[in-house]
Simulated assay, not measured.
Amino acid sequence: MFRKNLWAFAVLLLLPAFCGSGGRRAASETPFGMLAASDDHSLLPEGCYLLSAYDNIIRSVSEREGNDWRLVSAIAYHESRFTADRVSARGARGLMQVRPVVAREFGVPAELLSDPAINVRLANLLLNRIGRMLELPADMPERERLGFVLAGYNSGPGHVADARRLAAAYGEDPDRWEVVAHYLGLKSDPEYYRNEVVRHGRFVGGRQTADYVGAVLARYDRYCGLAER
């Protein structure tokens, strides 16, 4: 999954130079090739950013992975309120609330999850992996695709895939997020989670996942109005 060589990329400044570096610190190289010494770990001072003090980090890392930095920022807001040292009751850590088990799957030591750039890159890699795992149609409208990927980020792609299979089994469109969200909610009912198409068992967080998707997309829309891609 990871490239063998250390990456280096130019920092794209969002705001005028008089804002300064805002406390830049040198990035340390890591044995798994996550970051290079030229990567930007700077936090922007208040009044010198558009979305958060982590604009530089989120934008440069997300662009490298092919994702819209405003979407990733919206996720970061709802996951941690841009709090880099946040640890959830379930052990998820950092800006993007990445779990240690996910870090290990990508070959990253859990103790590095507190580094914002590493945390954001892992989240980007996870978002891309979820999109592949769900095998969404290439011609699916982008808004629908985002709904599925965000749901997978929140609840796990397995439950979303189950809900898609349930929708198909009941004669409904598995490529519409609104339809699949309904079946995701039904996965707490034995009539549905015991269906032969279900591979990941009972799920009780369907309503919360649907609310999460709606909230992130609404903030993403707001961020699109505040910042250019």
Rank of each mutant, 00 (worst) to 15 (best):
H78P: 05
N119Y: 04
E65R: 02
A167D: 03
L113H: 09
R93T: 09
S28I: 10
R164T: 04
I118N: 06
V180R: 09
S42L: 08
A169N: 05
V160A: 02
N124I: 01
C48K: 11
R164D: 04
H200F: 14
A163K: 03
Y54W: 14
N56G: 15
Y170F: 15
S188K: 15
V108I: 14
L112I: 03
R222P: 00
A8V: 03
P45E: 13
H78E: 13
A27R: 07
F2N: 13
S73K: 02
I75Q: 09
P16M: 02
A169S: 11
A169H: 10
E196A: 15
R202A: 14
R194E: 15
L71I: 06
R222Y: 08
V11D: 14
A17I: 04
G152Q: 06
Y223E: 01
Y77R: 15
Y54C: 08
G22V: 10
D173A: 11
C19R: 07
F203Y: 15
V198G: 04
V179P: 01
E46Q: 14
I130Q: 08
E105V: 02
E178D: 11
P157R: 05
F106P: 01
H182W: 13
S42A: 15
N124P: 00
A74F: 02
E191P: 00
P16R: 01
N195P: 12
S88W: 06
A215F: 00
R81A: 13
G33Q: 04
A110E: 14
G47N: 12
D40Q: 11
W7R: 03
